[in-house]
Amino acid sequence: MRPTIIVTILCSMLLSCAANNERYLFFLHNKWIEDHELNEGHPKYGKAEYREIVNAFKKEGFTVISEKRKTNTDEKVYARQVKEQIDSLLQMGVEPGKITVVGTSKGGFIAQYVSTYARNEQLNFVFIGSSYEGLVEQIPDIDLCGNILAINEKSDRGSVSLAGRIEKSTCHIEHFKNIELNTGKEHGFLFPLMKEWFEPTVKWAREDYQ
């Protein structure tokens, strides 16, 4: 995963990583950002506030690891790259509870594969706008593991709770919570930096599972 000018330097480059008390947050954006320039607004949902979201997490004290992905990024291949970065953090002594993977839309599906591949019950995951009717049957190879917060939007067509996917998990999931928002913004709820999903995500990444 190559760094960009707005990406915090990876922990593997920091000699003091294992000794500090930082919290690490991987942010995986939606497909619109993957396919368009960052300043290009969606015709219906407006601008996807990638920079604003990354900077907001940084202001909350997280070491943020993120980048603008290439068009048509393969979800499984990318998820394995993120899993390898998580492994590097763990090997250097970072506690798994201080690592959170946050994904919106397609980024949320990538994050679900990261959860599947990492298979670590203590890692934190937040899936935003990435649970829809029929996907448990259509994508059966996802087997979630970790502390999982799912956020979906009532007005987002076909959106459902992640509970059905959780029920099929073969991993023990200590903490699971599903939040259904009702902003009326349909799938566009995840484009801007909104406190409705940002604030619970920050709490989850701080290991506040209430």
Rank of each mutant, 00 (worst) to 15 (best):
P3Q: 11
D141Y: 02
I110C: 01
D156H: 07
H187W: 05
S88I: 08
N55K: 09
G134H: 05
F189E: 07
L149V: 08
L144H: 02
G158N: 03
L181Y: 06
Y78R: 09
N178M: 03
A48D: 08
G108C: 06
E22Y: 02
V101Y: 09
C145Q: 06
R119G: 10
A56R: 00
S169K: 07
D74C: 06
N20S: 11
H36Q: 10
K83Y: 04
F176R: 04
L25S: 09
P200H: 06
V160W: 08
D143Q: 12
G184P: 03
K44N: 11
Y45K: 04
F27W: 10
H175C: 03
A48Y: 13
S66L: 00
K83H: 07
E67T: 14
V160A: 02
Y113R: 11
E137S: 12
S12K: 13
N21T: 13
S105K: 00
N178Q: 14
G103W: 06
K44L: 15
V126D: 02
I166P: 10
K31V: 14
R165K: 13
T71P: 12
E180Q: 15
E60K: 15
Q210G: 15
E180C: 10
E174R: 14
Y45D: 10
Q122I: 01
D143N: 15
K168V: 03
K168Y: 01
S16C: 11
G103I: 00
R80I: 04
I151C: 09
E84R: 12
T71L: 08
E84M: 09
C145A: 14
V126R: 04
N124R: 03
S105G: 11
V160E: 13
E52S: 11
E174V: 07
K177M: 10
I65A: 06
L38R: 07
V202G: 07
L193N: 01
I9M: 05
E37H: 12
K70C: 05
G103E: 02
D87K: 02
N182S: 15
R157I: 12
Y209N: 12
I166V: 14
N21S: 11
D87F: 00
I110Y: 07
H187E: 08
W32D: 01
S115K: 08
G129R: 08
I33S: 06
Q91W: 02
K106N: 12
A111F: 07
L25I: 05
A111P: 05
W204C: 01
N39R: 03
K177V: 08
P192K: 02
N72K: 11
K70I: 11
C11L: 10
V94E: 00
G158E: 01
S159F: 05
G61D: 07
F191R: 00
L149N: 04
I53H: 02
K168N: 14
N72F: 09
M13S: 15
R2D: 13
M13C: 12
F57I: 01
A205Q: 06
H187A: 13
R206D: 08
L14V: 05
W197K: 03
K31A: 14
T71G: 03
V54I: 15
D141S: 09
L28E: 13
T116L: 08
N152D: 14
G46N: 10
E174S: 14
R206V: 00
M13N: 14
Q138C: 01
L144Q: 01
Q210H: 15
S155R: 04
